[in-house]
Amino acid sequence: MDRIHLIVGNSRDYHAVAVQWAIRRMGHEAIIWDGLAADPHGQMSIAYENMSPLRLGPRLFNTFGSVWFRRQIPFQPIGSVHPDARSFLIQELTDAHLSFCASVESMSNFVIGGQRTRCASSKSYQLRIAQELGFKIPRTLISNNYADVMAFTKGAERLLVKHFAPHYFISRSTGAVRAVGPSVIRSEHLSPEKVEVCPCIYQEYIDKIYELRVTVIGSQIYTARLSSNVGELIDWRPAFGSARLDVEPFKLDRATDSRIRQLMARLNLPYGCIDIAVDRSGENIFLEINPGGQFLFIEEKIKEFPLLRAFASMLIAQSCDFQVNIDGRMPIDIDEFELSPEFDEWRVAYDKNASKNPKFVTFVE
């Protein structure tokens, strides 16, 4: 039997469950690991002699074909524990999760995510490498020094302020969830108290006509053009899923295609989602790459992009060089997935958790 493919994430994540379904539909085995927990399915053992090296729940493993570190949950909610020991236990669980990840990487032929993405996920590092490869990037400052920030704002009518990672706030009184996204501000909105509390990413505001979402799956590149039909496009994410945003296929020019392939090689990434802005002059401006970005929302809008099949094919091939075989007799796409019993099971679990926990919200990354 072929080696099992492992998804380190959680079984309530749409992407994880869809990819597991696709791998199984293509005749291979995949499992999802939900993280450490006291219950039998969350127990782990790493052995070094006289046993199989790794236990995940009730199963023992010697090797994996591929591993995809999706949305990792290091550990499940902690049960009854003395308050004085809680911080110690959290640190121990976090470190144990890192040991698990290192072991899994060493046991796998092909890895997406994991340790290699730590440096590649750095916004400042991405921008530096992209610039070295010939991409134009926005004028950028990462700082919490008020004098440096104010000097940076001189001559800029509007600034874009960005955060380092996806985040959201929850109202304690209403339970309403608000996502943190890029904000357009003016220099007069800044004060030492606001700037010095935490470094932010400050960039010149780009008057763009559209954005490109470039999904790189191994050697395959799929590009979508995202444009607003109701005015300027600051950030396409809040508008996604509405009639305000148009999504259509786009063909990259040869130079940009080449730079993207060089970028993936320099960052040592087999997979990533790249955001590129196109300004009024038609120039491509690199914004960022997300090594763990979502991609199935693009397939939902552009049915001819076989993103689910391509991603599953790469994991099965355990290589960036793979063939996406489109077999009409056995469709593997999100429409077919959403007709499956696996989707029905996911939907029930998702609805149950969403109703119990206001934090259980999915944002496009």
Rank of each mutant, 00 (worst) to 15 (best):
I170W: 00
I170F: 06
S171F: 00
R172H: 09
R172F: 07
S173R: 14
S173M: 15
S173Q: 08
T174F: 03
G175E: 11
G175I: 03
G175Y: 02
G175W: 02
V177R: 01
V177L: 03
V177E: 00
A179P: 02
A179D: 03
A179I: 10
A179E: 09
V180L: 07
G181D: 10
G181V: 14
P182F: 03
S183L: 07
V184W: 01
I185L: 08
I185H: 03
R186N: 11
R186K: 10
S187Y: 05
E188L: 11
E188M: 06
H189C: 12
H189Y: 12
H189W: 09
L190Q: 05
L190S: 14
P192T: 01
P192D: 02
P192N: 02
P192R: 02
P192C: 05
K194H: 14
K194C: 04
E196K: 03
E196H: 00
E196V: 04
E196Q: 11
E196R: 10
V197G: 02
C198D: 08
C198T: 09
P199W: 08
C200G: 03
C200Q: 09
I201H: 08
Y202M: 09
Y202Q: 06
Q203C: 11
E204M: 13
E204F: 06
Y205Q: 11
Y205V: 00
Y205S: 08
I206P: 06
I206Y: 02
I206S: 04
I206D: 04
D207T: 05
D207I: 00
D207Q: 07
D207W: 02
D207M: 04
D207A: 15
D207G: 05
I209G: 01
I209S: 08
Y210V: 02
Y210F: 13
E211V: 14
L212S: 07
L212Q: 11
L212M: 09
L212K: 08
R213T: 02
R213W: 06
R213L: 14
V214N: 06
T215Y: 05
